[in-house]
């Protein structure tokens, strides 16, 4: 066999494997989405065909929007995710700047202390966290979730951002000092804009686990007013197990925002993972 033909065989094999995996990866999402727009009968008779004029139905979505307060859940998820990300990035970048920029006693130990949480999951402390939230009256508030997610996201954020802060040119910071910028101005006006790409990576890394978390909403904020989209859809589906239209519609409503966010940020996410791993 000559080289060109062997290469062709190789590339066919590669594409076959990748395509099968692609189908496997997308199949469940596809099945849920198409069936959510079909009548109950069509869902069971022809689960794998897309909706057509005969089988098209929005009855599932009607039930969901009538019975569950999905818009409200979505809003809660949005608030928790965005505010947590804001604090993770702000506090994380500040600490990273201090660790990267200043020599002080205990610098290395402080870095290690903050890095501890990368490997040890925060869930281990759930019992005490719940006690603490009960004692401070924060149970069933979004604040409780925001606090927990901020603490959870900080270790990795500090770790990644410290690496990037170290790359900010010393000459540049010194030029700022000579121009009379305070240390705070150097951080906000010189260092932060330069590590923006790294901040985006950290944001995307943290966004997904926060948005998708079920554990802490379930334990710390299960009330109707504070349910996140993840918990809300879980509870809703649990109640409507037998109403397949409603279940499929609820799943689709949970998938769509994540998928939309992913389409927007996928390049950032992939670049973040690949850049982080090179280190």
């Amino acid at each position: 066999m000559n080289k060109a033909r062997r290469n062709l065989a190789h590339s066919i094999a590669a594409h076959t494997l990748l395509l099968s995996y692609t189908i496997l990866a997308l199949f469940p999402v596809f099945v849920i989405l198409i069936n959510s727009f079909k009548t109950r009968k069509a869902i069971f008779r022809h689960p794998l065909t897309p909706p057509n004029p005969d089988s098209f139905s929005l009855v599932g979505y009607e039930t969901v929007l009538k019975q569950g307060d999905f818009f409200h859940y979505f809003q809660n998820s949005m608030i928790v995710t965005v505010v947590s990300l804001f604090f993770i990035l702000l506090f994380g970048a500040m600490a990273a700047f201090a660790l990267a920029e200043y020599r002080f006693r205990g610098n290395v130990w402080m870095g290690l202390y903050l890095a501890l949480g990368i490997m040890i999951p925060i869930r281990i402390g759930t019992v005490a966290i719940l006690q603490m939230m009960v004692a401070s009256g924060l149970v069933n508030t979004l604040t409780a979730l925001i606090l927990v997610y901020t603490a959870q996201g900080l270790p990795l954020a500090v770790f990644i951002l410290t690496e990037f802060m170290k790359q900010v040119s010393d000459d540049l910071k010194n030029a700022g000092r000579i121009d009379g910028l305070s240390e705070y101005a150097i951080f906000f006006r010189l260092a932060l804009p330069l590590v923006r790409p790294a901040m985006a990576t950290v944001a995307v890394f943290n966004m997904i686990p926060i948005w998708n978390d079920l554990w802490f909403p379930l334990i710390l904020a299960p009330s109707e007013a504070t349910k996140t989209l993840t918990l809300g859809s879980q509870v809703f589906i649990g109640q409507f197990v037998t109403n397949w239209n409603a279940v499929l519609a609820a799943l689709s409503l949970a998938i769509i925002p994540v998928l939309a966010l992913y389409v927007i940020f996928s390049r950032q996410l992939i670049r973040g993972i690949t850049a982080g791993a090179v280190k």
Binding site: L99, L114, I122, A128, V148, Q152, Y184
Partner: peptide, 24 residues
């Protein structure tokens, strides 16, 4: 300024992550 830069992260992390872990 070093204290100011470190304090928020260290406080939140210690109070919500490390302390509950030890308390658990």
């Amino acid at each position: 300024h070093i204290v100011v830069f470190l304090a928020p992260a260290v406080l939140v992390y210690s109070a919500i992550m490390i302390f509950p872990m030890i308390d658990t």
